[in-house]
Structure formats: structure tokens, C-alpha cells
Amino acid sequence: MAAEISDALHRAVGHTDVPLQEWPDNDLGGLGLPDHVFQHISTMARLHVAGRYGRQADGMAEVTGRSAAGVADFVRKNPELLTR
């Protein structure tokens, strides 16, 4: 994803690989989320790491009649969201 964003912004964008074991406690836990939300997001993260979301779906096209934008398309249309 960092490579796609870098290409869209025409500048280097880095990323930090945070081990899944550290993320819930160090980052997510400090947000003060209700326990059920914390558990849900933690579960979604584990499933993502396990590759459970590595597929495309066409629900956006079914609902709106147009395809979903990819990361690079979104960034090209909204660069101000990723610029200080």
C-alpha cells in the first residue's frame, strides 16, 4: 500500500511493520474503545494478517453501479488527505 500511495503522490511514503502481538496493546488499547469494538478490530486485524481479506468483491458495483476506487485512485483524487 505504501508503494501505491508513493506512486500516486510522486514522493516516497514509508511504512512501519508493527507486529500484530504489539499493536492491540500498544496502539489500539490506548484509544479507549468499548471492549466489544476493541475485540472486533483485533479480530479483523488477525484475519487480515492470516490472508482472509486478500480478495476482491463486487458489492460496490452492485450497489452503486460503478466499481470501487483502488488505493492509488483514491489518493490521486484526495492528495490533501495525505499531505501535512
Results as ranks from 00 to 15, higher is better:
Met1Phe: 11
Met1His: 11
Met1Gln: 12
Ala3Asn: 06
Ile5Cys: 04
Ile5Gln: 01
Ile5Asp: 00
Ser6Lys: 06
Ser6Leu: 05
Asp7Tyr: 02
Asp7Ala: 07
Ala8Gln: 04
Leu9Met: 11
Leu9Phe: 05
His10Gly: 14
His10Pro: 03
Ala12Ile: 09
Ala12Ser: 13
Gly14Ser: 14
His15Ile: 05
His15Leu: 09
His15Arg: 13
Thr16Met: 12
Thr16His: 14
Thr16Gly: 01
Val18Cys: 09
Val18Gly: 04
Val18His: 02
Pro19Asp: 08
Pro19Gly: 04
Leu20Asp: 08
Leu20Val: 12
Leu20Asn: 08
Leu20Lys: 06
Leu20Thr: 14
Gln21Lys: 15
Gln21Met: 14
Glu22Ile: 09
Trp23Cys: 00
Trp23Lys: 01
Trp23Val: 00
Asp25Pro: 00
Asn26Cys: 06
Asp27Asn: 11
Leu28Arg: 02
Leu28Pro: 00
Gly29Ser: 07
Gly29Gln: 07
Gly30Asn: 05
Gly30Ile: 04
Gly30Ser: 14
Gly30Val: 04
Leu31Glu: 10
Leu31Lys: 10
Gly32Met: 11
Gly32Ser: 06
Leu33Cys: 03
Pro34Asn: 12
His36Cys: 02
Val37Ala: 11
Gln39Glu: 15
Gln39Asn: 15
His40Asn: 10
His40Gly: 01
His40Gln: 14
Ile41Thr: 07
Ile41Arg: 00
Ile41Ser: 00
Thr43Arg: 03
Ala45Met: 08
Ala45Glu: 05
Ala45Asn: 03
Ala45Gly: 01
Ala45His: 00
Arg46Leu: 01
Arg46Asn: 08
His48Glu: 11
His48Asn: 11
His48Tyr: 15
His48Asp: 10
Val49Trp: 04
Val49His: 05
Val49Cys: 05
Gly51Pro: 04
Gly51Tyr: 08
Arg52Phe: 10
Arg52Asp: 15
Tyr53Trp: 13
Tyr53Glu: 01
Gly54His: 07
Gly54Ala: 07
Gln56Tyr: 06
Gln56Ile: 06
Gln56Lys: 11
Gln56His: 11
Ala57Gln: 08
Ala57Lys: 08
Ala57Asp: 15
Asp58His: 13
Gly59Asp: 12
Ala61Thr: 05
Ala61Arg: 13
Ala61Lys: 15
Glu62Thr: 12
Val63Cys: 06
Val63Ser: 04
Val63Gly: 03
Gly65Leu: 03
Gly65Glu: 08
Gly65Ser: 10
Arg66His: 13
Arg66Ile: 12
Arg66Tyr: 03
Ala68Gln: 06
Ala68Lys: 07
Ala68Met: 05
Ala68His: 01
Ala68Arg: 07
Ala68Asn: 09
Ala69Pro: 04
Gly70Trp: 08
Gly70Phe: 08
Gly70Ser: 14
Val71Gln: 03
Val71Glu: 04
Ala72Leu: 02
Asp73Ser: 14
Asp73Thr: 11
Phe74Cys: 02
Val75Glu: 02
Val75Leu: 00
Arg76Glu: 02
Arg76Ala: 02
Arg76Leu: 04
Asn78Glu: 06
Pro79Met: 06
Pro79Gln: 14
Pro79His: 06
Glu80Trp: 04
Leu81Phe: 12
Leu82Gln: 09
Leu82Met: 15
Thr83Gly: 00
Arg84Tyr: 12
Arg84Met: 10
